[in-house]
């Protein structure tokens, strides 16, 4: 089975709309001057929503950790085994879940610099993944 496609909600619609143009957005609280992941209805620092905004990100960071999934417990992405699941620390400071693509899994390492890349979803949206920078 292919990739599980995420549902969008009111909160995250701007993020997913921007992916259609390959723009990678990160949620920020301007009052706390802090990036937020995963996106929240309010900033967990000040518990307010007024100061939340989406900022375009260069989509650069480094691999915090990763695995090479050979036997997924869920019936998704079985058409591309083995695949790399990673946590990437963005330059903005947040740590995001992603896949590392466009390289052999054996080339991935903790601390490796990566940049955003895009894969098509079925409805015109794209999903941000990362590749070696």
């Amino acid at each position: 089975m292919a990739r599980f496609e995420p549902q969008t909600n009111e909160l995250t619609a701007p993020f997913w709309d921007a992916t259609k143009e390959e723009r990678y957005l990160v949620q920020w609280c301007t009052a706390c001057n802090k990036a937020i992941y995963y996106p929240r209805e309010v900033c967990p620092g000040c518990l307010l929503s007024d100061n939340l905004e989406w900022r375009e990100s260069p989509g650069r960071g480094e691999v915090y950790t990763f695995n090479v999934t050979h036997k997924p417990g869920l019936p998704f992405m079985t058409d591309r085994l083995p695949f790399v699941v990673a946590l990437v620390t963005l330059e903005e400071g947040t740590r995001v879940v992603t896949n590392i693509v466009n390289c052999d899994p054996s080339e991935v390492s903790v601390g490796m610099p990566v940049k955003v890349a895009w894969e098509d979803l079925s409805d015109g949206r794209k999903i941000p993944v990362f590749e070696p920078a």
Binding site: R3, F4, E5, P6, Q7, T8, N9, T12, Y37, Y38, Y64, T65, F66, N67, T69, K71, P72, G73, L74, F76, M77, F83, V85, A86, L87, V96, V97, T98, N99, S109, V110, G111, I127, V129
Partner: peptide
């Protein structure tokens, strides 16, 4: 469902292996 599952992160083994990998590194 929005931020983990689309990347194939949804089972305990996937999450625990992330911890093991960083501990090794």
């Amino acid at each position: 469902a929005q931020w983990d599952l689309p990347y194939g992160l949804g089972t305990p083994s996937a999450s625990y292996s992330l911890a093991a990998q960083r501990h090794m590194a």
